[in-house]
Design a protein around this nucleic acid. Structure first.
Lengths: 139, 139
DNA sequence: TTCTAGATGCAACTATATTGCATTAACATA
DNA sequence: TATGTTAATGCAATATAGTTGCATCTAGAA
């Protein structure tokens, strides 16, 4: 818990009780989670959803979480430990992580050919497919 | 206009007047556009927004348009001619297209290491940065 | 211990997207 | 060309996601 507090203070955020609990939860959770799911899992510990939204904005701005879009109509968030992306089954929503050999290759390549940009700060990369289980079921 | 009609019929969609007009507009527009912007630009020609949403679902399922998420809280859609992705300025929203040498490399690489997937149908890839103009302004 | 900037919760609100149903139009068949 | 069937459309209502304003409270500094 002291570790979580330290992370927050390092990025210049007040280490309130709520913030520590939410961040600790995100670290333990693994995988992108929605605001609604967070509220349910945190249960009594959960702050108001408005506060969760505000936290996510701050954590993202501070670079300690990622924003993830699985084309569900809402965003997901996950603690940023190692750089990775996701493959999502469009039928059953199962998620698998994958890593690129050099994640920055794409940004470098894009910048080399870009006329309007010299600075890339973030990127989104998600793959959508059918998992083996759904494929077998012929979906 | 006959060309547009042909595209629709080829993917098994009734070539109604509205559908042809919307698809023709998307082809001419270039770049990802939101439902709201479509309505404004199509003006009197525009179908109800419910119909636009339904069209986008069908066009996407048929593989003639792409879904694009610029983290704005809504989706954008664009006609799929050549495969490409986007760099978006998070400050002024200017957009530049970029192409990868081999766009499928990523999917291939991911599938090679995947345990749960053998089929990738689509992917999203967007870069977020600061454009040169906003960088100069020190934003 | 006190003070203050900023964090939180609640209520209200805005925006985005979807559903149900009555009406209308495309296009296949006669 | 006329007709029938299936699917497309528009409208109203609804659901879901995310934001704003403001009063209250709390972390951390003085």
């Amino acid at each position: 818990m002291e570790k979580v507090k330290h992370i927050l203070q390092q990025v210049g955020l007040k280490a309130t009780k709520s913030r520590c609990e939410v961040l600790a939860f995100l670290i333990e959770h693994h995988g992108p989670i929605s605001i609604e799911e967070m509220q349910k899992k945190l249960a009594k510990k959960s702050p108001d959803r408005v506060t969760l939204y505000r936290m996510m904005q701050q954590y993202y701005a501070a670079g300690i979480i990622n924003r993830v879009d699985f084309r569900e109509g809402f965003e997901r968030f996950e603690f940023q430990d190692h750089h990775h992306h996701h493959i999502v089954c469009t039928h059953c929503a199962v998620v698998e992580e994958f890593e690129l050999c050099d994640a920055d290759d794409i940004a470098k390549h894009a910048l080399k050919h870009s006329k309007k940009f010299k600075i890339i700060k973030d990127h989104s990369l998600e793959l959508f497919g059918l998992c083996n289980s759904c494929t077998k079921k012929g979906l």
